[in-house]
Write a protein that binds this DNA or RNA. Sequence first.
DNA 1: ACAAATTAATTAAACGTTTGTTTAATATTA
DNA 2: TAATATTAAACAAACGTTTAATTAATTTGT
Lengths: 209, 209
Amino acid sequence: MDKKEYILSVALELFGQKGFEGTSIRDIACKADVNIAMISYYFGSKEKMFQSIVENKASYLKEVFRELVNNTSLTEIEKIDLVIDHYVERIFAHPLFHHLLHRELSLNQRTQMHDRIIDILLRNIMVVKKIIESGIKNKIFRKVDPEITIATLIGTINQVLMSETMCRKLLQKDKDFKPYQSKKLKERIKVHLKQLMRAHLLLGNSNGE
Amino acid sequence: MDKKEYILSVALELFGQKGFEGTSIRDIACKADVNIAMISYYFGSKEKMFQSIVENKASYLKEVFRELVNNTSLTEIEKIDLVIDHYVERIFAHPLFHHLLHRELSLNQRTQMHDRIIDILLRNIMVVKKIIESGIKNKIFRKVDPEITIATLIGTINQVLMSETMCRKLLQKDKDFKPYQSKKLKERIKVHLKQLMRAHLLLGNSNGE
DNA sequence: ACAAATTAATTAAACGTTTGTTTAATATTA
DNA sequence: TAATATTAAACAAACGTTTAATTAATTTGT
């Protein structure tokens, strides 16, 4: 692997676990087994390295939802199902990065980075919002609150994966249980969210199981 | 106000906004207009002050849900409604404290504090879990996933209030809009969660509006 | 193809700040 | 007088960053 990328991956891991202020560049350099000066040499500063991580990783999650909204061969509820699948898969694939994003979102530090993250997240949120509004307009969905509904989608997954220890205690698993690596948990969340959204969104739903 | 309490309130505000590592005791002392040494004098250390904040504030939110589960004059869905009311009111009343709790939950720092916060949160979570399981047992609720359903409840509110800027952009409000002080938003979240939970939980629900 | 010149990568050490904490002296209150 | 509260100053340690020297890699001229 490219050395620069390797440093970024180590930095992501530590930032994700201990936060930006909670991680020193010495921590990163030590774990990546490089000299401290290499961080300034490669990235200019600690904060610019942080920005590199965000821009690097964010590029992965662009253009995923875009095609969804323009695909007319799918019903709105099928699109919602796909959004759930994509989103859950993404968070399970990059849990530390999403920890990083949402923690940064909850902080009043680094305004510029804060706004950048909002831009990144908002792009996909708007796609989902349009799907919901389309479903309402076509009288397939109930007149739900689109924005808060999206918060439910995103917030549910964040909440479950917020803390490994918390997740274990909530689900009453032993300490060997690794939430991020559990395919069962991933499917469980998908099933829950799909059932939840169908019950919440679909008109004339008698919930026959 | 008691000086010790005042320092704690200032510390809560700064920790809530900028995180534990992102806030220096000089920031706190300056904003509270006291000498730096007073923090050690009163609390012993920065971390012990943090613990004081958590224990102080946490005492407020004990014993709120306890009575709910033992009250047999209410149906399960009425209890869920009350849980939603209480929980939303609480977060809107102490937004910075809940920021603090959940951010600490997402960090792998201060294991002891981490476990303490989990204990605090889990107590109320278990009450809600029992309500849901009771509803399922009494064939009033569908056979939903109780644990992930709780994550939906908590996660939705966290998500909406995670960032003031994000909230404004999501709801397309101008910069004068203060999410934490908006009674309209508070009611909006309550209505959403109640409708969501009724559609999700109640058996034979035809969603007639 | 090969030595010379140039650029890039890496290092140990030091830089000046800021960090949390402590000290020892002073002021206030009981 | 004795206990408590408050202060300015200093503490060592850790912080992000820079420097200047050295090694490695690449490019160039012949």
